[in-house]
């Protein structure tokens, strides 16, 4: 690992040079305080102080819609695997979203391995960006301990006024700082400023919910029959927004798309959601999670219990997207607080 600095004066130049050599995606303002990772060519197109994007950068690892097999009836069972992937650089990824990518890496590396995801992972270079301040009241990144850089990126940028402190974390990152010679060595005073920011953050980024996250699985297990779940079900429109914007939701549906010759075609997949009406429906019309309350409960258990049991990792990153996007105002932080109160009783 090595540490560098990039002076602010050189930042625009850095992005322009980077974008000449690579496909660069960065946070772009879409209006109404909404942001989205989009292809960029210059620093001016990006907004670096941004609220988490509408959908997280997982879209570059598992696209909303993708083909993964091609078939021809004359080939019999010999279908052809396809991966649609291209090399790209993600600039300005927040620590919450890096945590999301780390969570997905675990899921898709588990057997059976998902080669489409893993090839893309190899193709993507991640340049993280530290949040010096809170994005808004929906975030719970401090509770989930995701407000500080903790690996999972190639380069990591921290804005310290006149310069960015740049942590080079991987060989891939090192190649880039070598090929674009705009970086300087980080000196003692630079480290000091970084430590100063982290000390300030330790005061402002404090547990937003008042629950140690390690306790959440137990709280959930003990409040399984709580009426709080029915309240969520009464509010929920089952629009699927909470899961579609979640950086760790990975469910998808699969079907075949035949060409008009009715002989050749492709097998495709598209993001699916446990909140959708048909998700848990089986042949004959029976649904295993007919009630919206059961679907919401499942979402919380998935993030804070099932995945913890299986992978020893929490699948909530604290990004706050689910609460931010919910028209019915189902709020993750508030729900956890209510569950804890009931648990304590």
């Amino acid at each position: 690992m090595k540490n560098l600095i990039l002076s602010k004066e050189r930042f625009e130049h850095f992005i322009s040079l980077l974008a000449k050599k690579h496909n660069v995606m960065g946070p772009v303002h879409k209006g109404y305080d909404n942001f989205s990772f989009q292809p960029i060519k210059t620093a001016a197109e990006m907004t670096l102080k941004y609220v988490p994007t509408i959908i997280p950068p997982k879209k570059y690892f598992m696209p909303q819609y993708e083909s993964f097999l091609e078939y021809d009836k004359t080939w019999g069972e010999n279908m052809k695997a396809v991966v649609e992937s291209e090399a790209l650089v993600l600039f300005g990824v927040h620590t919450c979203d890096i945590a999301g990518i780390k969570a997905l890496n675990i899921v898709f590396s588990d057997r059976p391995r998902d080669y489409n995801y893993l090839s893309r992972k190899k193709d993507v270079t991640i340049m993280g960006l530290e949040c010096n301040e809170y994005c808004d009241e929906f975030a719970s990144c401090a509770m989930m301990n995701n407000h500080l850089p903790d690996g999972g990126y190639d380069l990591f940028f921290t804005d310290l006024g006149d310069f960015f402190f740049v942590e080079v974390s991987t060989l891939k990152g090192d190649v880039i700082v070598e090929e674009i010679p705009v970086f300087e060595e980080a000196l003692g005073r630079h480290f000091k400023e970084l430590q100063g920011l982290r000390a300030r953050k330790a005061k402002t980024f404090t547990n937003e919910v008042g629950i140690e996250y390690q306790h959440v699985p137990k709280i959930l297990s003990d409040t399984k029959e709580s009426l709080i779940w029915n309240e969520l079900g009464d509010k929920c429109l089952a629009c699927g927004n909470c899961t579609n914007v979640c950086p760790t939701c990975y469910c998808f549906n699969i079907w075949d798309e035949v060409n008009l010759d009715l002989k050749t075609g492709k097998r495709v997949r598209m993001w699916d959601s446990c909140q959708n009406e048909g998700y848990a429906k089986v042949a004959g019309g029976e649904s295993f999670r007919e009630e919206r309350s059961a679907r919401q409960k499942h979402r919380f258990f998935k993030k804070f219990k099932y995945m913890v049991d299986r992978y020893a990792r929490f699948f909530c990153t604290g990004c706050g997207r689910c609460s931010r996007t919910c028209m019915a105002q189902i709020n993750l932080k508030e729900t956890l607080k209510k569950l804890k109160e009931e648990y304590a009783r």
Binding site: G31, T53, I54, I55, Y65, G240, W271, G278, T325
Partner: peptide
């Protein structure tokens, strides 16, 4: 052929549109 039985919001979110209610 099953007409999707979920809200337009699902596809809208996947297309990363700014929600009309926010506008």
């Amino acid at each position: 052929y099953e007409v999707p039985d979920y809200a337009v919001c699902v596809e809208c979110k996947l297309n990363e549109n700014v929600c009309m209610y926010e506008r």
